[in-house]
Design a protein around this nucleic acid. Structure first.
Lengths: 101, 101
DNA sequence: TTTATAGATTACGAAAAGTAAGTAGCTTAC
DNA sequence: GTAAGCTACTTACTTTTCGTAATCTATAAA
């Protein structure tokens, strides 16, 4: 990849938000904690990629994973404070969509 | 791709903004009209992809392309009204980056 | 005729995404 | 006790997109 004078924080934010499915997953989690299957059903994403993205978002401290040892097992995902702070960003995309698409 | 109950306008907006380089190109064009080489130098993107993205954005009515038949040729890109309207979205990403990264 | 410049386009290997089938751990039904 | 079902993944494989570098087009000056 080419180097540039671009601010690394902005660059990273753009990579995060501008990664396929990331913003939609956050949008979905703004509704509240949800389990894997619920997210998968709400979005046109496959389980394979949802699993991958949730791991990435967990590593970034944006999403939190909670395992409930019930039968069958239950796993819930919710936004951390850092994740919640992306609400305005995602809402802006939503507003733009309403006005211009 | 899986189908879902997701609002198609939101879905499209997410695909646009959440496509690699798109938001950064718009961010760059917020500075004003710029030529191809200027954008390429400002961002860590290759000419091949920049060309591809600019065509997509032009097709979406977000970016306008102006050719000046000088020697050597000069081509400038600028945001349309629709493109300008994405400023708040891009600024939100920028703000989030400043606060959380 | 060669060189230079800007803005692309093409070729090709590498990486990421899409699809479908399979796995693990535990439960209930037969 | 074994077969089937549930959730949350994971693996294998194909298709699409990306990244890098070389090439093309048009024009003009050296």
């Amino acid at each position: 990849m080419k180097e540039s004078a671009l601010c690394p924080r902005l660059s990273k934010a753009m990579e995060l938000v501008g990664k396929r499915w990331t913003a939609l997953i956050i949008y979905q989690l703004l509704e509240g904690p949800q389990r894997f299957n619920a997210i998968e059903s709400a979005l046109p994403i496959s389980g394979r990629l949802l699993s991958e993205r949730l791991k990435e978002l967990e590593k970034e401290g944006i999403v939190e994973r909670k395992v409930f040892s019930e039968v069958p097992i239950r796993v819930e995902y919710n936004l951390t404070e850092k994740g919640q702070s992306l609400e305005q960003t995602v809402r802006e995309i939503e507003n733009w969509a309403k006005s211009w698409l």
